[in-house]
Simulated scan of single mutants.
Amino acid sequence: MDAYLTAKWLHILSSTVLFGTSIGTAFHMVWAMRSDNPQVIHRTVSGALMAALLCTAPAWLIQPATGLWLIHLQGYPPTEAWLTLTYALYALAFIAWVPAIGLQFRIRSLTDSTTSVPLQARRAYRICIALGCPAFLALVAIFWLMIHRPPLWG
């Protein structure tokens, strides 16, 4: 396999892991919180955190590396408008993801050895969802930009 196909394959694979793991863990978090069972929430959040650390975190690192590799291989100017917007959206998604992980650690801690879901855990969950929505939309917009590569501004 040549360098371009290797870079493209790694980039697509890591974007799939990043997006898919994020959507999957968010779905399971929502489902667990709906149970109103602190033991279910604790176990689900523990699994979501494991997925975030084993799958999502490496993908966050691989994406820019393979993206820059592809930019180099394809000869795009790194300051091209659609790429600049992609960098900003990626930063937005990452900046939302980091505190969401911290909130998940908090939810896990708050639901350990308790008989009811504490209000602090519910508040942390709502903030986590509020952070996840713009991150999700940013990643969807990045997919669109990667496919269309539109001319945006001069």
Rank of each mutant, 00 (worst) to 15 (best):
W82Y: 02
A93L: 03
R43M: 07
W97R: 07
Q74R: 14
V45I: 15
S109A: 08
P58E: 08
G47F: 04
T84E: 03
T6G: 09
L18F: 11
P38G: 08
L85A: 07
H72N: 15
T16C: 08
P118A: 01
L152T: 14
F27R: 12
I107W: 01
P99V: 11
S113E: 08
L54H: 08
M50R: 15
F105C: 09
I41N: 00
I23V: 13
M146V: 10
V17K: 06
Q74S: 10
A52H: 09
V140F: 09
A48Q: 10
C55Y: 07
W60V: 15
Q104N: 12
M1W: 13
L137I: 12
A138I: 14
A124W: 01
W153H: 11
P151Y: 12
I95V: 14
T56E: 04
A121R: 06
C55D: 06
H42L: 06
Q39I: 13
H72S: 13
F136G: 01
L103Y: 10
I12D: 14
L5I: 14
G24V: 15
W69F: 09
T21P: 00
P78S: 09
K8H: 01
L61V: 15
C128N: 14
L83P: 00
L13D: 06
L152C: 07
D112H: 14
V117P: 00
L152M: 07
M29A: 14
D2C: 01
I107T: 13
S109I: 09
G24A: 10
T66P: 00
I142F: 02
A26G: 05
W60I: 15
L83N: 04
G102A: 06
Y87P: 00
Y76I: 08
A81S: 10
G47V: 11
W69P: 03
P64F: 02
P78F: 06
I95L: 07
V140C: 10
F19Q: 05
